[in-house]
Design a protein around this nucleic acid. Structure first.
Lengths: 133, 133
DNA sequence: ATAAAAATAGTAATCATTATTGATTTAGGA
DNA sequence: TCCTAAATCAATAATGATTACTATTTTTAT
């Protein structure tokens, strides 16, 4: 099953690369439809899965039951704001070797990990300070 | 809305405390039905949510799209075996202060984190070694 | 240009979870 | 104990994200 080019997949990836807010499949669908009105929601789901498998994008499972996607595949973590629901990035540097440390504690063989954070994002923090000094 | 006792909720918690394999709502339902055949699946879901909110159990979102539940509320992490799908525990000691370190890197205010691991569990590791030396 | 393989649009199906509703159970006071 | 209001229940319908299906269209190598 060699992978063939498709305009739809290209548009999906192009759109995702313009965004830093980790959109869901539905948001991708809404936006790509602006440029390509006939695209099907199934096509969006299929290509987001395919691109994730290829490692060209990352699928994020952030505990809200909805998959988010990120074109930034560099090593970083995510923070979900409990106030606005937004998703922002945290640098991985300085958080420590979670994987290595976990393997020391575990009798099997840990190969990977998923970590995400929740709290108040910078924007919401500034706003709440401004109104309640 | 004061919380009142219910036999159903008691049975759900009792069952969960006998298990260390982090069962799903459906598994809880199947098992509690052995002792209480009339219980409804909705009741299981409602009480698992309620017990989670009360902090008496933990709800685990492990990336497979199905919620798992754990009566062990102590500080520990989980490993999903990519071979058998089982969920086992890792001690939190020695993994490091993920939360504290993340806050250093982040401009907002991180309040909590979710981490889970995937790899090969001890059982599957032993088995694969036994058959393929 | 042609034909096989892959991808698509449109739609239906799946499946975990949540909501609804009318009946039942619990708990605290008379 | 009996009564009442609030909480809970069973049964079922609804929801919502995701996946599966199928006939048609697009891609790509020859």
């Amino acid at each position: 099953m060699a992978i063939k080019y498709s305009r739809q997949r290209q548009l999906i990836k192009d759109f995702l690369m313009t965004r830093k807010d980790h959109p869901t499949a539905d948001v991708v669908y809404m936006n790509v439809r602006q440029k390509y009105p006939n695209i099907s929601l199934g096509t969006v789901y299929r290509n987001l899965s395919l691109l994730s498998e290829l490692g060209e994008i990352r699928r994020l499972r952030l505990g809200d039951g909805i998959d988010h996607y990120d074109a930034d595949t560099s090593d970083h973590y995510h923070v979900i704001c409990t106030q606005c629901g937004g998703v922002s990035d945290v640098k991985a540097d300085g958080i420590g070797d979670i994987l290595g440390n976990a393997n020391i504690e575990y009798d099997g063989e840990i190969q990977g990990h998923v970590t995400y954070f929740y709290g108040i994002c910078e924007k919401c923090l500034k706003y709440s300070r401004a109104c309640c000094p």
